[in-house]
Write a protein that binds this DNA or RNA. Structure first.
Lengths: 217, 217
DNA sequence: ACATTGAAGATTGTCAACAATAATATATCA
DNA sequence: TGATATATTATTGTTGACAATCTTCAATGT
């Protein structure tokens, strides 16, 4: 039960259905989910530990509001960890890996073509996830899952609330090309640039938004 | 309450007082701690999410038993993350950093001189922790805290149960020397070698132990 | 002797009521 | 009118009892 609730809430948070800053009241939620407060509390505690919720004693628990500083940190970690992942898998890339990578890039393009923004975000993260999955390091994979969750939440909420656009159709062609190419160093460089571009895009949107907001008031 | 319980249990696990594989029965623990099962469950769930306990539904929750594969993964991640941390702080190393690093190395030697094995383990991890703390990346720091916990538990339990020796007195002199030196590349190389040596030492002990165990039976 | 079934015990999962705390609104006084 | 003390309300924290599930062990039949 508590695992199902956790999954349900996690999905609601990650898709932006529950917006950052929204408070989750135990009694109300428990009733609407048809469960008791016990399992619900357990699920919420788990999401707190995953960094998706933040709880202050006797006051309430809310969906975290990720700061631009956090986004900076996340991108720095992504660069580091994804470079590491490719370093680990580089020699063992086989036909199955190449096929899967191309498949996920096609899935990303398909989601974009359907104007499915939440799906595009998921597809992009799935594409990046392949390297982590194949590295065979459980701890590395867990770190990625955590980073992935925060990015997904951030993007989804900004998309929903402020019209942030999803990824572009060709955005990962270079990524895939280098990932299939012969030079690990070239891939490392591409990763560094790819992340830099991604970070700049996100930052630019946030800054433009805060400026608009300032003009409104 | 639940936070205090979590801290208590965490300490017991990390010092090896609760050995890997030991089962934690809720009803018994709750009584011995003078609390109810509710807060205890919450604390245990948190430790599960930290990777210190593992829980199987309707059956029980135990202290995790880390495999040699996990140790491999942890050392690979350590190398990657600590190289990243030094990369981040390299330009901003100041007198305070140098003083603190030397201080922690002295603390390590003091603990070794007093034959305080659990303290030596903590001191070694504290020494390594400085770079993570100064990098100013919360996500990086959280990753380190998690890795640190697993290492501490592994070493402490092996020390307690099987007489594994703590770190040597001069083991981190090179580490400190390069960390204070002029060349980032030299520090990166030292980190790689340092981790390689640490991993080999740990592996050698574990293998010798399993061999002894096999001869016994 | 061996496998299979069933019952007993131990352990976790769930629930609803109660207690403790923090936030808010209200009344009182300077 | 403004500030302060107080009462109210909303929300989380805690507890003990009960239900669901797994494990173990014994009984039974082949």
């Amino acid at each position: 039960m508590s695992a199902q609730i956790a999954a349900l809430l996690r999905r609601a948070i990650l898709t932006g259905e529950l917006e950052p800053g929204a408070q989750l009241v135990e009694s109300a939620l428990a009733i609407s989910l048809g469960a008791s407060r016990g399992p619900l509390r357990e699920a919420m505690r788990q999401l707190v530990d995953e960094g998706l919720l933040v709880s202050v004693p006797y006051t309430g628990t809310r969906v975290v509001d990720i700061s631009i500083q956090d986004i900076n940190d996340i991108y720095a970690m992504r660069t580091c960890l994804e470079q590491f992942a490719f370093q680990q898998i580089w020699e063992q890339r086989d036909e199955a890996f190449k096929a899967e990578l191309l498949l996920r890039n096609e899935a990303l393009k398909a989601a974009i073509d359907q104007a499915d923004d939440v799906g595009s975000i998921e597809a992009e993260l799935d594409l990046h996830g392949l390297a982590y999955e194949l590295a065979g390091n459980r701890i590395l994979l867990n770190s990625w899952i955590s980073l992935r969750g925060h990015l997904q939440m951030y993007w989804a909420s900004h998309h929903r609330a402020h019209g942030m656009r999803g990824p572009k159709r060709e955005s990962h062609d270079d990524y895939v090309r280098h990932a299939l190419g012969p030079s690990l160093q070239a891939m490392q460089d591409e990763l560094r640039d790819h992340m830099r571009r991604g970070l700049e895009t996100t930052k630019a949107f946030v800054e433009a938004r805060t400026q608009t907001k300032a003009e409104d008031s």
